[in-house]
Simulated scan of single mutants.
Amino acid sequence: MPTHTPENQRLVDLLKRVALQDHTSFKQLYDLTSGHLYGVAMRFVRKRELADEILQDAFINVWQQAGGYSATLSTPMTWLISIVRNKSLDRLRRSKIESESTDALDVDATGQGQDEAIDHPDPHDLFAAATEKFELNRCLSLLEPPQRQSLALAYYNGLSHSEVAEHLQVPLGTAKAWLRRGLERLRKCYDADTHTTGPKGTA
């Protein structure tokens, strides 16, 4: 059975409010737990930049799935650690082949990649990045499937307009229209979020 302590209860209460999309509670939860969770990610991936990305992705999941947490099944930290652990394992599987080439790039020429990784990143910067990524994902989810898929192919997979059309088996003009309308809707949604929430990373 989960251990009932004041610290656990505070995290339970924060998760309940995060489930209601309370940004202030989300920031408090992040400030209280991100240091420990960052250490968990580091133990798996051993690279600061990967641990940063895993932490951001994990807190996006927390924001989206906080309503699924059950205090009767596990403590908040156990639940949070399991998210970070799963994200870390997924990342290790995806980057297994790419890791050697990435390491070679990090030490290329000036060695700037290593120098930049010496200091621990500012938690507030990580929180802002995680929030921004969540807002982008939310806006993407509001697009029509063809628009979302065409944008993903063009901007995440690097396909040209003609390649997107070929992949989706539609005329080139249709693919271009999906991309154009998708970008317009994405920009409007993202701009609306920015104006509503104010500067990133503020309570």
Rank of each mutant, 00 (worst) to 15 (best):
A19P: 07
P146K: 04
A175Y: 01
T110Q: 11
L168K: 09
L29T: 04
S88D: 03
Q65M: 10
Y69A: 00
S162Q: 14
G67I: 14
R187L: 04
Q64T: 01
Q147L: 05
F127W: 01
R148I: 00
L92M: 15
T102A: 15
L14G: 00
T24V: 12
A41V: 13
E184N: 10
E184V: 14
P145M: 01
R43H: 07
K96L: 06
V62T: 05
Q21H: 00
F127P: 05
R48Y: 04
L159D: 15
A109D: 09
G111V: 02
D103W: 01
S162A: 12
W63D: 02
K47F: 10
R180Q: 13
E53K: 04
F127A: 06
L183Q: 15
E144C: 04
L140I: 14
P146S: 08
H36T: 11
P199V: 10
D22K: 04
K188H: 08
R10D: 12
V62P: 00
A152M: 05
L80I: 07
F44V: 01
R17F: 02
Q21A: 13
T3P: 08
K96H: 06
A130P: 09
R17S: 07
T110G: 07
D103T: 15
Y156H: 11
F59M: 08
A109P: 00
T196P: 10
T5M: 03
D108P: 03
R46A: 06
T72D: 15
R138K: 09
E144N: 06
Y30T: 05
S74N: 12
F26E: 01
L140T: 15
E184Q: 14
